[in-house]
Design a protein around this nucleic acid. Sequence first.
RNA 1: CGGGGUGUGGCGCAGUUUGGUUAGCGCGUUUGACUGGGGGUCAAAAGGUCGGAGGUUCGAAUCCUCUCACCCCGACCA
Length: 617
Amino acid sequence: MSQQSTQHSPITNTRRGDVQGWSQTLIPTAREAPSDAELPSHKLLVRGGFIRRVTAGVYDYLPLGWRVLRKISQIVREEMNAAGGSELLLPALCPTELLKETGRAEMYGDLLFRFEDRHGRDSYLGPTHEEVIVEMARGSITSYKQLPLNLYQIQTKYRDEFRPRAGLLRGREFIMKDAYSFHLSMDGAAGLDAGYDAMYQAYTRIFTRCGLDFSAVEAEAGPIGGSASHEFMVNCESGEDTILVCPETGYAANVEKCEIGERPAPAGGWFAGEPSGDLDRVHTPDCPGIADVCKLLKVKTPHMLKTVVFQTSGENAPAKWVVAVVRGDQDVNEGKVRDEVGCAIALADAEQAKAAGFAIGYVSPAVVSKVESVLMLVDPDAATGMDVAKGKPRFWVTGSDEMDHHVKHFNWLRDLGTDPLSSDKIRVASVRNAAEGDPSPRAPGATLQARRGIEVGHIFKLGCKYSDAMGFAIMDAEQQRQSVIMGCYGIGVSRTLAACVEMSHDEDGIIWPAALAPYHVLITVMKAGDQRQAEVARQLADELSERGVDVLIDDRDERPGVKFKDADLIGLPVRVTLGDKALDQDSVELKGRRDPGKGSLVPRGEAISRCLELLGV
RNA sequence: CGGGGUGUGGCGCAGUUUGGUUAGCGCGUUUGACUGGGGGUCAAAAGGUCGGAGGUUCGAAUCCUCUCACCCCGACCA
């Protein structure tokens, strides 16, 4: 990062740029993409000779692809180091015993590449490394004086995805940077909050330097566990993930995490409204799903009341069961239910729930007055009896609490079996996923907008989850034994490569940001074997290299058309074309990848500075 | 895992329904010539046993059985 020195010293990062001849390396470009590729990033990376598929979700990184990965890694290293991290390398081949300490062998299930070695020892290929690093740390970190600490590695990870897809975007083998931080407190300069914040800042710098258009969004901590979490998403319509943003405040969150703004009670109050008709019990065989019922009864999903049964655990559980009720077209958010209840919850075990009296698949809100120890949370959109917009009673269809039957014209006040407003077993609470069009939680009057993205980074506050499970505690300054508090921070390095292409390409090929381009400048020699052209190419490359610019010289004996097509395809930011016409005028042709046309004639003497200018140096 | 689909030289495909000579085409590759500023032209050549195994048949890329691999759509993740 240091700009202070341009000399070549063994103790600075300043380096001479690489110069490579196309004919000396392997760049197998192709006119057609393999038929299995669908996304632009997949097609272009294969066509441009960056990667090649070996088997499902596993790729060769060819010279060009590997150079980009190294550039990403280098940026990651510089920023991680600047943020106080230290690089190390943990094994990819790990003993399964480690996962038994945290119970994640079961949690990962088939996602884990798992096998026995010749001695029958159970082993796995690391999908992530919390256990491995805690195992290492608990043997090496023995004093509070060693904290805080941030350790990271850049390594190949393995996940036996059910469905690898989209080239590098979801592989079974992929390159990831994973970092882990260790603290003894949440607060203070040495605490997790400060460490987390430093990583947030570092990630922002990393993706900015990579030239990516990205958003940092609030996220669910997910199965890795812990309290706070942010995802870094490359903004891109073809992304797999949906995020919601508030256009007024810039608040952004992943769908699972996104809060919903205030939804006030309707004019008549919660649940109020006349019945839409007599309660009508209908036979709905083999219809446990909302979609099936709607199809059979010819009603639309917003008219359904969906009930999801959870069971609680922990000492402060207010009830044994929690029933969440949302509108049929909306999704229950487990995290919001958990927060509302105030204790750990899990989707109810079907057998146990049935034994307790729940007709799983056909549960109605009235179950609250039928089964013992139930707390019911009703989402505001479901807790109404009037369709205010239409001035009509709400028409609700829901389960009937008996197998294979639903009811029409459910009315909260009439059919619940208890008064929803006075019962302490019933609460109106926001328990569903946010969706586009919902009120923003940060700006009154504003509505949330949906955007697509590709997740390239994810940071978590882990807390003591792993240190407690694995007995990682040390003495603090007061001679108290304390669990070590952790954070973990991931970047999908190979995914970042693909996301960049996904975000930045046109119909001719890739458009690399200068920071990630495998080479910065392509010198296209028009006539292979022409003495003068070869000589100028060599000189230019040399001068550029002196400035730290990486240069690829297209010295192939190919027709110009082939070279230009390939140039656009591999997408280097700057192209210098050396032909007789230009050289006769002591000039060269210069073209930025995004510039239309053939580029402009530039005096030979200005070529270097103009290249640097185009590179934004 | 559920649903849909595909396997024929390095890549993209045709041929399979209705079995029948040496399995075709385009791109790419090699050699030669002509060319030379956006995937050029001509000529010649190499390269596949039709994903694999078994079966039916005088005869199988084609029909049957089993199997393997890969892709797409759904639930999870860097």
